[in-house]
Structure formats: C-alpha cells, structure tokens
Design a binder for these strands. Sequence first.
DNA 1: GAGGTTAATATGCATGCGCTTACGATGTGC
DNA 2: GCACATCGTAAGCGCATGCATATTAACCTC
Lengths: 159, 159
Amino acid sequence: MAMAQNVAQGDSPAQGQPARPDLAAMLVPLGRALMAAEQPILNAQGLTMWAYTVLLHLDEKPIRTQSALAEAIRADKTRIIAVLDALEARALIHRQPDPEDRRARLLSLTPEGRLLRDRVQYAIQQGEERLLALLPAEEREGFLRGLRTLSALPDLTLE
Amino acid sequence: MAMAQNVAQGDSPAQGQPARPDLAAMLVPLGRALMAAEQPILNAQGLTMWAYTVLLHLDEKPIRTQSALAEAIRADKTRIIAVLDALEARALIHRQPDPEDRRARLLSLTPEGRLLRDRVQYAIQQGEERLLALLPAEEREGFLRGLRTLSALPDLTLE
DNA sequence: GAGGTTAATATGCATGCGCTTACGATGTGC
DNA sequence: GCACATCGTAAGCGCATGCATATTAACCTC
C-alpha cells in the first residue's frame, strides 16, 4: 500500500529505491575524475586548466574582447588576465589592440598555440577513447550523442 | 599529407578539427548546471549539497565511521562534522557511539531523514526526467547506461 | 570639449575547500 | 601498565574562486 502511492505521476519510480543515481551525482564526480586525469597531460606542457580552456575556445573563432572570452568560458573577467599574460609570454596567443577600438584586445591563437592545443587535445582525446572503448558500441554512441545534446542546452532548469 | 600523418593509431581523428569536444569540457559544465538547477530544490528543504549527499549515501547502507562516510562522498573528514551536526539537530540522522568501539559513531538515517531524502530525490529526478525527455529514446538509454558504467569505474587514467 | 560609457587592469574581501596539526577519548598490543 | 594507533573534533593555513571597487585609457554623444 505504501509502496505505490507516491509513484503517481511520471513513469520514473524515483520514490523508495530509485532506479538510478541522480545525474549530478554521477556527472560531477566523473567530471572531476576526468579533469584530474587530464592534469598530468597539461602539466607536462606547462598549462593550467584555464589556459587550456582558453586555447580551446580561441581556436574555434578569434574573439574580440577579453570579457567575451571570460564569459564564454564562464571565468571571471579579472582572473583570466594572468592566464592571458602567461599564454602571451609563451607566444601561444596574440593579444593586439583592436585598430577599430583600441580599448579592446583582439585575441587569437598563434601557430604555436594551435599546435600545442592540437597536441594536448589529441593526447587527451586518445585517453578518452580508451575509456570509451570500455562501453559497448551503441552505448558509447548514445552516451556521446546525449552528452553533446545536453551540454549544448543553453540553461537547465529542473522546475 | 599533413592531414593524415597524425591519425595513425585509433579511429578517432582528434588532430586538426576534433570530432567532438573533450569529455570533461562537456561533463563539467553540465554537472555544474545540474547542481545549480538542484540548488533551489535543496534550499526549499534547508539542505546543503553536502547534507543531501550525506543523506543519499547513508540511505544505501548504515556507515560505521564518519571517516568512512567522508571518504565515500569524497569530502574532507573534518568538514562534514558541521554537516552531520546540522542533520542530527534536525533529527534527520542518528549518530550514536558504537557500543563495540565507543570512538566510532554509528550513522544511519532516521525515518524523517529517509522521508526527506525520498522527497528531495523524487523532485530532482522528476526534473531530470524532463531534461532526459529531450533525448530520443535509444540515445537516452545509451547516455544513462554509459554514464552509469563510466561513473562506476574505480579510478580513471588517461595514460 | 564635457559628460557618460566601455574595456582592460589592479586590488581587496569573503567564501569554500583540501590539507595539516593538535588534542582528548578510546581501543589494542606488548 | 605503557606505548602506540584510531576516531571525532577544533583550529588554522593556503589556494582558487566569485564579487565588488577603483583606475586608466579609449570611445561616443551632444
């Protein structure tokens, strides 16, 4: 009697013994573990996670302002300055005043920056493929596709 | 010529334009977004994320020591004390000295704790199901199965 | 040209968290 | 009985982060 009364709406019996752990309870530790696993690769190239994130986003398209970059990678406007300093000092990025608006700094990857980004990402994704190889083929495909879809959602709300 | 030389091993062309973003680059923001989406539900019950995590883990099986709990939820041994204090003050958990070893504190959910855990998790998973409903059925199944498999791995290494 | 706005930068503050140390209470081995 | 280990607790340090403020240079409007 007490078993069924709470499963009224929806087809997911989350009451009592749930059918699965919470998504965040699986996603967050997995994400942390992956970041930790990437760290040695980044360390070997003298890159912080923020620096790597910057390289990744700059590669897609050159960005006009640092604020836009900060917002895109969900970092603090003032905190990425040191990151950009370090990347510029290693000639991995260009940071030139926009001739059209000299307040802004045009950001772009240098060839060396692109090369390093490629090397690091290749190493990381090679490792990831080894992990994904543990999954059956269709499961792997569904995982990747679902992950891409969900992570592309603009903003999530549960209510 | 330069295009193919680096894709020697494996079937994933991660060099140049990668076929997909890094896993962590999708997982971590998605996990953060989910946690943020859960926050209002937890706030409504006066629970912190740590407190909810404790409730989740205590429900599976009673735990003998606080250290074991801390390790299980990857929290700091000393930091969960305040969390347990608060949960105990609200009578959501029991924390009794183990008669066999009075140094240890036996931890378990009270009926009220289990009830609250059920309510909160039900609300959260209801919201999650709405998100998952955005995915095609087989994609959703693969995503969930892959996620469960990967998050169950004891320790990840990319090298 | 004066006033208001925006970008980049520097700086400070508060928070949360991982890590370490210290201590008292308890248990174990000799 | 005594040395040592273990558990819970308290306190502090250090680092990363988010948030806010202030400054300077450049732009824009009138």
